[in-house]
Amino acid sequence: MNNQLGIMGKRVWRLLSKQKAVLAIIAMLIVMLFFDTNFYTSYNILAMLQDASVNVIIAFGVTLAVICAGCDLSVGSVMCLSGIITVQLINAGVNMWLAMLAGVASGAVVGFINGFFVVKQRTEAFIITLGMGMLMKGVCQHLTDAHPISSKNLDFMKLANGKLFGTIPNLAIVMLAVGILVYCLLRYTSFGRNCYAIGGDYDVAKYSGISVVRTKWLAFVLCGTITAFAGVLLSSKLNTGSSIYGDETALMVNCGVVVGGTSFAGGIGGIPQSFVGIMVLQLLTNCMNMLGVTPYLQVVCQGIVIVTIIWLDCFGRKRKREAV
């Protein structure tokens, strides 16, 4: 009896230690029970989902690149760029939906260029995307003269600020839809399965007849496209296109994806993990806001949490290496 309990305990522990991000969320939820705040209200939880949705959608895109053993640090600038292009086209009198399509297309183009460098030329993904991010940031500043620009079309603003049945924010629904779409893409299509194969071992995938170049390239294009879509949503939410957003977004989102348990070595991870990873960071911000922690101290805590989770992740891998 005692023995059985021990085995069960070990199993639960193993499951939880694999999902450190879930553990962190549970810990935060428990801590918040002891404080008398508005944390456990439907209003707060829905607002939190709405705030997180843009980053979560970007994380879904980044997950594709990371599973293929890449990563994309240009997402912050792509997000700005698509928003700016959309708002500028709307103000120029272009149909709203066409303008949004153009914004999303701009992300696809950047993703295509990233893919060219990473896959076709085999450069280090994170440094080349960092450079592309810098370049795109400059383009954003050049386009807007570094001023924020607001759209004159109120319908555009209503898109992301609307609520279904007056309660559920549209953004949360879009986030769910994109999540399910990418999840199905990864799980039920040959493209998705090839992504995991390429991330697991590039050469093995190549010799087993997978068209590695095309698949990985497509992953980067999709990553750019999804990010640009999130950027359009952000500019709709704020009714503004500006080059000042997204300085921290790229590293935050990539960190969030890793925090969730998608491995940077590639081949491991998925959409639910990325969602959990970003929600850890979002929940942390929300909890600290509720508890009245000062903004600078919040950054310290956030940094410590990121370092701790990635440290634990590395440490687990080290133990595994040594056990072999």
Binding site: C255, F264, Y296, V299, V300, G303, I304, V307, C314
Partner: peptide
């Protein structure tokens, strides 16, 4: 490099804060 990237990024935000 990737592991070092994220750990030093986290530490950077701690130091600047």
């Amino acid at each position: 490099q990737a592991e070092a990237l994220f750990i030093t990024f986290g530490m950077s935000s701690v130091y600047s804060a």
